[in-house]
Nucleic acid binder design. Structure first.
Length: 259
DNA sequence: AGCGTATCGCTGTATCCGCG
DNA sequence: CGCGGATACAGCGATACGCT
């Protein structure tokens, strides 16, 4: 791999031409993710499904962005995992659960909370009334790390997914976990095997958003470019601003060390 | 033979654009 | 105006290659 120090400087202040979100979210909704899971289940059961098989089942071209976006969406919801060795994708435990009529309802609720952004929003508005203005939710999403230009898309997918996941059963103005699932709806082993951004770590006394943040920390003695550190710190600052009462804003800056 | 570096390809994501 | 598809971009891992 190339020396990280020689990579072009990433904009640590988020002012780059192409802003990247610092929190994971799907571009399509839970319904699309379920459709992918159903196609895998139908075509390959619980074994590895080749991309061409799956694309054919979905009626899409294998190289189309639609196909790739759907795969990415299903992965974000924790329903599928890529199998590099097998050169395809397979259903996760949660994915198998969601295609099972008996357990689909529970699985949908868990899949919704498997998305870091959705979980963060759920934690923020649990038991409270959602802001009536779409712009307010979008601003909240931006604060959580969604790229400014993606907040609209993220909100739309969020609302449809919440509907499908059963979180709007008490009205579209408040997020409520489907009855019988309670606070466990997030599940702990429904995510990717490697943990990834699932947010399982941390003590129970820590806010879930902080736990999720901590899982993003690389292990000691590994290379961690300062630009990435700045991004992490900026995300932390945003989260602190949301969950703690504070009297100002934190500004993270990267100082050039080359001289 | 072992280690470090460079390159390539794959995957995920942001943005643009056309269609209904 | 919203949605879905197409394109472009960026990061990461795998692999090839050269040096010691």
């Amino acid at each position: 791999m190339a020396d990280p120090a020689e990579k072009p400087d990433l904009k640590a202040d988020g002012e780059g031409e192409r802003e990247r979100s610092t929190i994971e979210f799907p571009y399509m909704d839970l319904g699309d993710a379920i459709a992918v899971s159903a196609a895998i289940h139908k075509t390959c059961g619980s074994s590895v499904c080749q991309h061409d098989q799956l694309a054919a089942e979905l009626g899409l071209s294998m190289n189309s962005s639609g196909f790739r976006t759907r795969l990415s969406t299903a992965r974000t919801f924790g329903l599928i995992e890529t199998d590099r060795a097998g050169g395809g994708v397979r259903l996760t435990q949660l994915g198998e659960m969601i295609v099972d009529d008996q357990r689909a309802r529970e699985a949908k609720a868990k899949a919704f909370l498997a998305v870091p952004l959705y979980k963060a929003v759920y934690e923020l508005y649990r038991g409270k009334v959602l802001p009536p203005a779409a712009a307010a939710i979008e601003r909240q999403m931006a604060d959580l790390g969604v790229a400014q230009k993606q907040t609209g898309r993220a909100r739309q997918a969020f609302e449809r997914s919440a509907q499908i996941g059963g979180y709007f059963e008490h009205g579209k103005d408040r997020l409520v976990a489907p009855a019988g699932l309670g606070d466990n709806a997030g599940g702990t082993e429904n995510k990717k095997p490697n943990g990834g951004s699932g947010g399982g770590g941390g003590g129970p006394h820590l806010h879930l958003m902080v736990q999720g943040l901590l899982t993003k920390l690389p292990p000691p003695d590994t290379d961690w470019p300062v630009a990435d550190q700045a991004r992490w710190l900026q995300t932390a600052a945003s989260i602190f601003g949301l969950i703690y009462k504070s009297d100002g804003k934190i500004k993270i800056e990267v100082e050039d060390e080359a001289h």
